[in-house]
Design a protein around this nucleic acid. Structure first.
Lengths: 154, 154
DNA sequence: TATTGTTATACTCTATAACTATA
DNA sequence: TATAGTTATAGAGTATAACAATA
């Protein structure tokens, strides 16, 4: 009736734990944490962006992100400044040091993906990723439905 | 060269964050946390077991698990006693209250899986789970290789 | 000595809400 | 009033190491 070992949330969680443990230790050698790595990667890819957008891109809570950015700014990895168009927002950008650091780490990160997918051919790897995107979207849709239900009953 | 949005560890992590957020809130209504739910589910499925084995089954650190179990014991959900065969180990079991609670929660848990896989047919869902198991094993193999490398160089 | 758990400490992430600054 | 971020606080998880009990 219920089997933990084939329960999707559990399967996803244990991979997350294992990856975070392994890659996190490697990142420690560079003096950064896993959330910091995600911030650097998101900034590298999509360029400077507002804090809110960065929170979505990295799946990190805004308040958590704010303190994380403060630490990264102290370490000279990112720069924050009020946006000119809408002075309520804050624009976050990579510094040169941050850009250099993420560039050095990317090969390590790709190595982890290679290992995780070592016995997958390219088509299967793509299929897996596509399915994971669908799963993510499905859960997001659930949340929105939940919110609407809450709104209707309020 | 590097795309966060198609990077496997990121795809897995964001699903984990989203699921933990949604299901965790539901569990709060029952007065338990997500790690507690995993402990209850593991105990229900494989019966009473040692703390170490429970740690593996749930992907929770032993020291974290120990304190978690202390709280669950205070709440009357589990029972701990020294194992008779090897008195170094501690056997953890569900109490009747714990068994009743997990039984009530299982339908909710299954609902989350249904939503996450809402647009998957049965074969695709199975394929996805099989791939996730392989990914988990691959990363585990990496860790062991890393340990061996460390051993050899030590 | 090695193994199984427990406990202690310091650190990080989360949830929540109060607060600041804009709009 | 509403939105974007920041800050504060309390709670929970993690890493590490010291410790207790047993083998």
């Amino acid at each position: 009736m219920f089997n933990l070992a084939s329960y999707l949330p559990y399967l996803v969680n244990r991979i997350g734990v294992r990856l975070a443990g392994a890659f996190g230790k490697e990142l420690a050698a560079y003096g950064i944490t896993l959330p910091m790595w995600r911030v650097l990667a998101a900034l590298r890819q999509r360029g400077g962006q507002r804090v809110g957008r960065l929170a979505e891109a990295t799946s990190i809570e805004v308040s958590t992100l704010s303190r994380l950015l403060a630490g990264m700014e102290r370490r000279g990895l990112v720069r924050r400044e009020r946006a000119s168009e809408d002075a309520r927002s804050v624009l976050v950008e990579l510094t040169q040091a941050g850009a250099r650091l993420i560039q050095r780490i990317i090969p390590q990160a790709l190595h982890y993906e290679d290992v995780a997918l070592r016995d997958f051919d390219r088509a299967d790897a793509e299929a897996l990723k596509d399915m994971l995107v669908r799963v993510y979207d499905n859960i997001g849709a659930l949340e929105e439905e939940g919110l609407e239900k809450a709104r209707r009953s309020a």
